[in-house]
Structure formats: structure tokens, C-alpha cells
Write a protein that binds this DNA or RNA. Structure first.
Lengths: 245, 245
DNA sequence: CCAATTAATTGATATTTATCACTTGCAAAT
DNA sequence: ATTTGCAAGTGATAAATATCAATTAATTGG
């Protein structure tokens, strides 16, 4: 029952048969590291995709379940989060098309180290982890690319850890707002796809505190904010708030 | 001047000439992943070691400096730490013989993402990162081993992040004490090699709080503690304190 | 062995941040 | 259109934790 969330999409996609490849092909184009593959390796990848769709809130990967697949989003957005102490979640990142979703557990204990849940409607492409393992062994450039990919994530989580530990609430929230602007939407004006609760799970704040500090930022003219939209008005100041802690 | 800390050992060891290989050879025996190498690959590794010694407090690697080398400790212990907001450090882990020290920055921006400083007297063996990069490309099993190594570290830092975010002080300190017992000393009785200040940098607590909570743990019979020694008396209870947060 | 630092301890107080108990707003479902 | 059910906002309060100031150990270089 715990594992349903992981296996169901596979079953669905196996049943749905032929239209799998179309949206998955876009994944091979978008993730840089697939460019290191030979034609036949790429073909092998393209023959082993499984697609599934998810509605907001549905779980793509469940922490603790067997890590047999890596995945990419073909469309939509998801949150990756760790289920921590007494059910309190910790949102690690926002997943979006073009980025590999494969937790470090794949190489350690074959269990997912975090859960992934759809925020919007999501088309997800699953690919067996064995395919990746094989490519790492036979293609040195691909292996190096995998190391780069996991290294970037690892560096981010170091930075993140220090930020969480050393910044006070305004700094942490500012950091999250900048993450959305720079890493996710690549725009200083965006839909806030997370609830206050979730924004709190990302910045380690109570949902009430998120609201209060968002209001302060608005009152001081740094951002415009309503329930569903964020607009950064004074980016320099927001960066200062984030950096200073 | 910033980089002296990194290059000096190399220069020293180059000058000191012939007795380099001895202690470094022990590194190739202790790190599991070297077993994937062929005889000639291993020889190549063994021809490219540089050794240096450090006194307590001396810096082996400096955050921000060029990441041109990986390293192993042949003897002694060191702390790896991130220099965070206004000079406040965050200790990530304790380095000891048998473990690869190579930050994720090696594969991202060729800069060290953290500093490493000796706690005790340390013999360190440096090896050019290019040697590793080459091995990753030509030896699939080695590449896989590198991915495993970095994955383990990445998983730890995820766990660590959640712990920091969600546990209160006693839970965080209990976790650190268990880390020393289980991961570092493999004994429930050990020398506390970190000062209260440093223990605070590891658990995100003020040094005064470290002392107070250590005292509470002692008064409730969970540990014995004096300035320099820790003895875990009731491990189950300590684990409960750590898990519950 | 002793001055001179550095680290640890202690108690009082200030900050930061969470929690609680409501109220309000909004949107989906009947 | 009205209910129903969350998500958001508010103010008061409590909890956790840092900071400060003053001592008291420990260390260590001379």
C-alpha cells in the first residue's frame, strides 16, 4: 500500500501502450547529459520510457519506496520533500521539466530518500534506474555528467543547510522568493504556486510567520504580494535581506 | 594569500621527495573504491600522491580556493566546515582516514565548497583531481563508486538538514553525540575532540546552550560528560531523544 | 611553576519564533 | 445562491534559544 504511489504510474503507462514516446522524447532533448550518448545508447533510452500523468497533490514518488526509476517531468511542476519528524514535511526543491529527478538513495539503499508530489497537472516520464546504471558503466562522459548533476544538487543542499541554520526568517523567506524568481520562473513576477503552509515547509517557518513577513516585505516596498502572485519590486534590497540573513 | 593553505602542502611535499608513497599507500587500501582499479590504474594513482602534515588548527583546504586536489587523511582527524554568514562556521562532518575528501565543487565550479581544518595532528595525502576525473571516464566501476560515495554524503546532508530544521536543541545534540559514537569512534565512550563552541557550530546552538544541555543529559543519567570525555550510559534513551527531536 | 590566554560555566535578560484561538475571505460543491 | 471547507490573516501568549556580563576552570608558553 505504501508502494502504490510508485508502481501505479508504471502500470498505467504500460497499459496505455503506444503514445509513450512522444512527450518523453522532449526529456532527452532537455537534459544536457543525454547529449553524451551515442545513437544506439539514446535509442535504448528512448525504448524504455514510461509515461504517466498526475493531478495536483498526487504523489509521483514516495519516500521509502523502492527507487527503481528515475524520472523527468515533461510538463508541470512538482515539489520534492522529505517527510520528517512527526509528519512535518520539509520541501527541498521544485521539480520542473529538464531536470533529472533521482534521489541519492538510488545508489545507496535503493530507496527513495524523498517524496515528489505534483503541484500542477504533471506529465512525468519514468525510466528504469538500471538504464542509468548501465550508461554510467559504459559511457565515461555520461558518468561524469551524472557526477556533475548530483554535485550541483549537493552544493545547493550545503548552501541551503547553512542558510536554514544561520539566517533569520526574513532572510530565509527572501532566499526562497529569489529561488523562484531566478531558478524556477526566470522572472521577477510569478504565480506563487505554494501555499503559505508549503512556503513555511520550505523555509522552516510557521505558516503564520510566512504571512507576516510577506506583509512586512510588502509594506517596505520590496515586493508586491497577494495570495497567489509575487512581484519583486526592489530586487537589490531583497538580495541584501537574503544575504545578510 | 587566500590560497596558501592549499598550495603550501604540495610544495612542501614535493620538496621532501621520496618518503611520500609510504603513508599514502595506506589510503589506497582503505578507500573501498580503489579496489575497482586495474593494476596499472592503481600504479598511476600511487605515482601521484603528495603528502603533507598539519598541526591542530591548520587549514588543509580553504573554502573558495581552487579545487585541484582530492585528499585522504593517513592519520589524525579534521573538521569540514562551511564559512557562513558573518564568519559564523557550520561544521558539516568529521574527516578521518579511509574517507574521500572531495567537495562537490570539484565537478561544478572547481572551487572548494567547504574548508577542512586539522583537529589533531594530521598526515594528509593529496591527489590531483585530474587523476580522479580520468578514472571516472575510463573505468565504469570506479565511476559508479564515485557516485555511491557522493550519494552517501548527499543523503547524510539531507538527513542533517531536516534534523537541523525540525529538532530542538536536545535532539540535535543527541544526534551529534551518536554521530561520534557510531560513525566516528565506533564506541560509546570517546574523547570529545570538539570544543563547546565547535559542538555548537555543528548543531547550530550557542556554546552556552551546548554546555547546559550536556549538563541536563548528564543529570538525567543519559551520558557522563566532562570537558574532554563523553560516555554514553543509556544509549536507547539518547536515541529516543535524537529521533523524537 | 606561574602569568596570560583561552575555554567553560552560570544566571539574568532579550530576541526570535511558534502556537493557539479566532476571524475573515474565498472557492468548490450542492 | 447557500452551504461547506480550507487557506489566509490577526492578536495574544508561550516556548525556545541567543546574548550578555561576570566568574571560574583549564591550558600553555615562557
Amino acid at each position: 500500500m505504501l508502494f502504490n504511489a510508485t508502481f501505479e504510474p508504471l502500470i498505467l503507462s504500460i497499459m496505455s501502450g503506444k503514445n509513450l514516446i512522444e512527450s518523453c522524447a522532449s526529456c532527452t532533448e532537455r537534459w544536457k547529459n543525454f547529449r553524451t550518448l551515442t545513437k544506439s545508447e539514446l535509442q535504448h533510452v528512448n525504448e524504455n520510457w514510461y509515461e504517466a500523468t498526475f493531478k495536483p497533490g498526487e504523489i509521483l514518488l514516495k519516500q521509502g519506496s523502492p527507487a527503481s526509476n528515475a524520472l523527468f517531468l515533461a510538463s508541470g511542476m512538482a515539489k520534492t520533500y522529505i517527510e520528517g519528524i512527526n509528519g512535518k514535511n520539509f520541501i527541498m526543491s521544485i521539480a520542473m521539466p529538464g531536470r533529472l529527478i533521482m534521489g541519492p538513495g538510488a545508489y545507496v539503499n535503493s530507496r527513495h530518500t524523498y517524496s515528489v508530489a505534483a503541484i500542477t497537472n504533471v506529465q512525468a516520464c519514468f525510466i528504469s534506474f538500471e538504464v542509468f546504471r548501465h550508461l554510467v558503466r559504459v559511457n565515461g562522459a555520461f558518468a561524469e555528467g551524472m557526477l556533475e548533476d548530483i554535485s550541483v544538487k549537493s552544493m545547493r543542499s550545503h548552501t541551503r543547510m547553512v542558510n536554514l541554520a544561520q539566517k533569520k526568517m526574513p532572510g530565509r523567506l527572501a532566499e526562497a522568493l529569489l529561488y523562484f524568481a531566478d531558478d524556477i520562473f526566470k522572472s521577477d513576477e510569478y504565480e506563487m504556486i505554494l501555499s503559505r503552509q508549503e512556503l513555511g515547509e520550505m523555509t522552516n517557518m510557521a505558516k503564520e510567520s510566512v504571512g507576516r513577513i510577506l506583509k512586512e516585505l510588502e509594506e517596505s516596498g520590496v515586493i508586491y504580494s497577494d495570495a497567489s502572485k509575487i512581484k519583486i519590486l526592489d530586487k537589490d534590497k531583497l538580495i541584501v535581506i537574503s544575504n545578510r540573513g
